[in-house]
Simulated scan of single mutants.
Amino acid sequence: MTDSHSGGCQCGAVRFRVTGALRDSSICHCRMCQKAFGAYYAPLVSTRGAELEWTRGERKTFRSSNFALRGFCGDCGTPLTYEAPDGIAIAAGAFDDPSLLPPVVQFGTEGKIGFVDRLHLLPCHTTEEDAVEAPFVLEVVSYQHPDRDTDRWPQDET
């Protein structure tokens, strides 16, 4: 049986499927990845040795260096790819089930922000617990694309 993983952006305009084994899931702490993801680090999954197919829409790209392109959705801005001469890596959170792709290595650790290693020590709260300070969270209706392939998106409202 061949592994197959699908995913896409937040709004559903861009979707992809990767067929084959995905073994190289990583976290990159370099400053370029921090800025590209707007986060403390970038979780990425290399598609080397697998087949990547764009099944809906086209990503836009930004050349972030002389070697790398960063792919993203032009509609909602979701980071999608890191593209370099050695292949394409997909943003781990863009997969429909990112829990299947745990990181196995960290790169760019010279840019690692010190408190990242202590995030697991912070107090944790469920969304419902946040409702005391922000009651609107109990009435949120998500307009995100679901974590599965759809024939079309957005769905007809009829």
Rank of each mutant, 00 (worst) to 15 (best):
D117S: 15
K60R: 15
L69R: 14
R70W: 08
C33D: 07
F136Y: 14
V45S: 01
G20P: 00
D149P: 05
V141M: 09
T81V: 09
A68Q: 03
G57M: 05
Y40Q: 11
C76S: 12
D75I: 11
R23V: 08
D117Y: 10
G111H: 02
A92H: 07
H120E: 14
W153Y: 08
I27C: 01
D156S: 14
D117A: 15
G38E: 12
E53S: 12
M32L: 14
L121M: 13
I27R: 02
G71H: 03
F72R: 05
A42Q: 00
I90G: 03
V105N: 12
E157K: 12
S99F: 00
V45F: 01
P43Q: 00
T127S: 11
G77H: 04
W54M: 15
G38N: 09
G77P: 02
L44R: 00
D24C: 08
P43A: 14
V18C: 06
T109N: 10
G108T: 09
E157N: 10
F95V: 06
Y82F: 14
G87Y: 06
D96R: 03
T47M: 05
S64C: 09
D149E: 15
G20D: 01
L69M: 14
T81I: 07
D96Q: 02
C73F: 07
P103H: 06
A92K: 01
A68M: 01
W54G: 07
A50L: 04
Q106G: 10
T55Y: 07
A21Y: 01
C33F: 04
D147N: 10
A21K: 12
R56S: 01
E133H: 08
P103V: 03
A89N: 10
V140K: 11
T150S: 01
C73V: 03
L138W: 13
S64Y: 03
E83A: 11
P43D: 03
T158K: 13
